[in-house]
Design a protein around this nucleic acid. Structure first.
Length: 259
DNA sequence: CAACCGTGGGG
DNA sequence: TCCCCAAGGTT
């Protein structure tokens, strides 16, 4: 049985009942995808409900005041998403008669829509086989296939997109994409994944080599941290610093000799 | 490609 | 308290 078949079978019986899964119209899917960018489903859920209720169609969103859109977005973070959302709704209404582009490349032209979101919309709404690669997909593929390429590198981005694209079920791309993300989100979790009860554990490279907690690999970016050091500087009567360097000084240690 | 954009939750 | 992570995109 293929990777995609096993995955989709798992999805059929394990998927959560989420409101946007009941529809395939690009407005609802686009709205949900923008809201869910870098946002947990539990957090985005209320906002999706509020937006779809307040602005049932792209026309309603387009004619809203930006101020009101931002007000409804309040608390979600990444506020440029809200401005782009409103801007794109007006663009769709004014230049495309309210009809969303129906291809991956067409969707990519919309503000706030990158490769991930264009792939999600085109696969879910138009059955275009474009693989999504989000944090969940990185994790699942890195573990199952034992990929050690850092996910936050350009090489990693290419490699994972290529693999996901190879694995995708071209007959059911939307289903496959959602299944892969759902699997990563609720089963192949970052911490304490359910490896003992996993459809891939006989083949999973990470599971069979003790790498589950090692993969995916992420290169640590140099993060700025405020550190406070206290120095004691001793001066002699003639303003000379009294400090003697130790030979063989260990990096990071400072030695001061008093005399 | 690094930096930046936000908030909430978990370890 | 601190760091990581979350259905990413833009500059």
């Amino acid at each position: 049985m293929s990777f995609s078949s096993k995955l989709i079978d798992w999805y059929q019986s394990n998927k959560r009942d989420l409101p946007w899964r009941a529809r395939k119209d690009p407005y609802a899917i686009w709205l949900s995808e923008i809201i869910l960018q870098q946002t947990r489903i539990e957090q985005g859920l209320k906002y999706y409900e509020a937006f779809i209720e307040t602005y049932p169609t792209v026309f309603d969103l387009a004619k809203a005041e930006e101020e009101n859109v931002l007000k409804l977005w309040q608390g979600l973070g990444y506020y440029s998403r809200a401005r782009n959302l409103h801007h794109t709704a007006q663009h769709i209404v004014n230049n495309h008669k309210g009809i969303f582009p129906n291809t991956h490349s067409g969707l990519l032209n919309l503000k706030g829509v990158g490769d991930y979101t264009a792939s999600a919309i085109s696969s879910i709404c138009f059955e275009e086989p474009q693989a999504v690669v989000d944090g969940n997909v990185y994790r699942v593929l890195a573990r199952v296939f034992g990929i050690k390429t850092p996910i936050n590198s350009s090489a990693g981005a290419k490699e994972f997109k290529k693999l996901a694209q190879k694995l995708i079920d071209e007959k059911h791309p939307g289903e496959f994409n959602q299944a892969l993300m759902e699997f990563g989100s609720t089963h192949c979790k970052p911490q304490n994944p359910f490896c003992e009860d996993c459809i891939f554990n006989s083949a999973c490279v990470a599971f069979n080599n003790g790498l589950v907690h090692t993969l995916p690999v992420k290169t640590s970016k140099t993060k700025v941290r405020n550190r406070y050091f206290n120095y004691l500087v001793l001066l002699s009567e003639d303003e000379k610093t009294i400090l003697k360097k130790e030979p063989e000084m260990v990096s990071g240690e400072i030695s001061i000799n008093f005399r």
